[in-house]
Design a protein around this nucleic acid. Structure first.
Lengths: 238, 238
DNA sequence: CGCGTCTCTTGACAACTGTCAAGAGATGGC
DNA sequence: GCCATCTCTTGACAGTTGTCAAGAGACGCG
């Protein structure tokens, strides 16, 4: 990797997160500076784009084979590039997988927000939650399997712990938005707080995932039913 | 491995499970046969004993490093033998780990049965359950971490699926013994059946494990409290 | 004691792993 | 069209992996 590329790689995420850089150039050098800036920006975008593309290939491979059985060559083979390119865009395997985890997060932590926003009654919210859980269970089964795999890896390997914890917290908040709004709409207090609420539904989902992947056709329907029933149960008795 | 040892290996578990073999010898050859039998039995016991010993070393290593990072040489180094011996007692890595999983099961599926047997009131059972969960969370944290790791591996690797499913079913029954007896003692019906009941408490435990391993000192206390609260919540409203 | 069997060690093998360096091609500004 | 830079491929490296074979040592029978 060239020095320039190195710099691009190291700052890619930080810079792309900014909407605009400060314009402190004098009038004299403004055009040249802007040009250079525009070029750098384009390179940066292309760089970030390819990183995302490779991360997508990595996510697919990991979801299929699992963390323990996935090598960098496997990932490259699922992309349109050779294995060497991975070390041009990622410094090592850990950084690649960390990036994958972050990309996964962006896709999933707002999964149920639409339901929360549109539901007008407790019953509607409850049914929408159950249906959405059952739907993603079937449609993104391998990706969920990977999530649980990586979350477990983080219990053995500290390098993943931080990002995994961050995602887990986001998921907890996502579930809490549903549960607390449900209690709100239903007008009943809750028996548990955010943490155990997430844990309970995560447990239900994980069990359903295991059964679904084992080929049990009733897994999604059962999940739908169980989620609704438990959601009801978590409202405290009056 | 010699042919004899091979046979011993293949039949070790089946034979040790039997309490006594059929005695069909004639009086003439009885002594010789019994002698041979006694010898074979002793060899068999020694063989099974060493298998268990090696499996214990494997369990310890796996619990420390996780499935993905544990090699046969790592395991051997945690025992008092060299790496070659593993292929004398186990045909391959898969058989070793499968054996480990079975050994793990034997240690854990009756974990709460004492509480079920001795509890005389719903409150006592509920408190005993919460305390026992919190205790094993702390005392056997790495072993639980391994269990979740292997259960996840079984979602990617069919070779472990059968044994893992068997253990998971046993755990579900174990939890159900508690939950159903609790409802019995409390005189209230339950909102959920065996499957979701297990899923819910497993979710609580897994979250507590993650937090405990992350160094959060309140993990065990929270688990105790959450388990009791959820157990109460799962009793249906009258 | 001698000998066969059981146990275990040693060393090797082929395959695979993450990593990296050298260089070929592609691209785009001048 | 030239040249610098970016992008990607190829091939190699050192280390690790599961597996196995050859043989040394231990054990226990006759």
């Amino acid at each position: 990797m060239t020095e320039a590329a190195q710099v691009v790689a190291e700052t890619a995420q930080a810079v792309t997160a900014q909407t605009e850089t400060a314009q402190t150039e004098t009038a004299q050098t403004e055009t040249a500076e802007r040009n250079r800036d525009r070029i750098a920006r384009r390179q940066l975008d292309k760089f970030a784009e390819r990183r995302a593309q490779l991360a997508a290939a990595a996510l697919q491979t990991l979801a299929e084979q699992g963390y323990a059985r996935t090598s960098l060559r496997d990932i490259a083979q699922n992309s349109e590039f050779s294995h060497g390119v991975l070390h041009y865009y990622f410094s090592d395997k850990t950084e690649l997988i960390t990036y994958c985890v972050r990309q996964y997060k962006a896709e999933c932590v707002t999964r149920y927000d639409n339901i929360v926003a549109t539901a007008t009654s407790a019953g509607e919210l409850r049914r929408g939650f159950g249906a959405a859980m059952a739907a993603t269970l079937v449609e993104e089964a391998t990706l969920h399997r990977l999530w649980y795999d990586l979350r477990n890896q983080s219990l053995f390997d500290d390098s993943y712990r931080h990002d995994v914890t961050e995602i887990d917290d986001s998921l907890e908040r996502m579930i809490w938005r549903i549960v607390s709004k449900f209690a709100d709409l239903a007008g009943t207090p809750l028996a548990v707080s955010s943490g155990p609420a997430y844990a309970v539904f995560d447990g239900l989902f994980q069990q359903a995932l295991i059964r679904h992947l084992a080929g049990r056709a009733d897994a999604a329907r059962d999940l739908d039913e169980n989620v609704q029933r438990v959601l009801d149960s978590l409202t405290a008795r009056s």
